[in-house]
């Protein structure tokens, strides 16, 4: 019992909370960047521009089918050899963005594909250019349909930030490890805390997504 009380000391809880903030920071920055890059890549892939779409599609397929952990290693060990030595948080954001952009590109591509083809034809028939039809008619519908898929991608992004502990990014998982590294009796309390914190963040997001989905249906 005493172990549990000590494990959850104010200092430790504050330290965990700091880790949680870094986790959220990495997640939010990565998701914003990934939405931008992912949308561009997804549209390029969907649009079937000769050569470009095939090359983009190939890159998307390769990166999507690799473990994120491997991407993290690549970024952390590979970037310095290109003369850029990022700190661990930047490296984590970089790796998450590379990986998640590809995942989101795939979601966007299939989201656009799911919008009825007649919508594009009707837009083109009144003289809208391709990008105008995309921007005003196709994308708003596609994004609306994709909200559940995008939120579940965000949830897996948040969970995946825990992998960044391998390059000693000071996020939630890493901070928990630091705490139980001092005292093995804290292992179980720390894992319980991790489970609860991640669960609260991720589960609330999935509830929000469900509410949005129901409201819009």
């Amino acid at each position: 019992m005493q172990n549990w009380i000590n494990a959850y000391s104010a200092m430790n809880l504050r330290f965990l909370f700091k880790g949680l903030l870094v986790t959220l920071e990495i997640s939010i920055v990565s998701v914003i960047l990934s939405m931008i890059f992912g949308s561009i890549l997804g549209i390029v892939r969907y649009t079937k521009i000769p050569w470009l779409s095939e090359i983009v599609g190939f890159i998307i397929d390769i990166i999507r089918n690799l473990p994120l952990l491997l991407i993290i290693f690549f970024v952390y060990f590979g970037l310095p050899s290109l003369g850029f030595k990022p700190d661990t948080i930047v490296a984590a954001i970089f790796a998450m963005t590379v990986f998640e952009s590809m995942m989101i590109a795939e979601i966007i591509r299939s989201g656009i594909g799911a919008v009825n083809r007649g919508q594009l034809e009707a837009s083109r028939a009144v003289g809208m250019k391709y990008y105008q039809a995309m921007w005003h008619v196709i994308l708003p519908q596609a994004y609306k349909n994709m909200i559940p898929a995008l939120v579940s991608q965000l949830i897996s992004l948040i969970k995946d930030t825990s992998l960044a502990t391998i390059i000693v990014t000071p996020e939630l998982m890493q901070h928990a490890q630091v705490i139980y590294g001092q005292n093995a009796n804290y292992i179980v309390p720390m894992y319980l805390a991790l489970a609860v914190l991640y669960f609260i963040v991720c589960y609330s997001l999935s509830i929000i997504s469900r509410i949005i989905d129901r409201k819009m249906a």
């Binding site: 009825n116 007649g118 919508q119 034809e121 009707a122 837009s123 028939a125 009144v126 005003h136 008619v137 708003p140 519908q141 609306k144």
Partner: peptide, 13 residues
């Protein structure tokens, strides 16, 4: 040239 489609294709959004 205006066009009217079999399935209307009104912009759903």
């Amino acid at each position: 040239v205006g066009m009217v489609f079999q399935h209307f294709n009104l912009y759903a959004n």
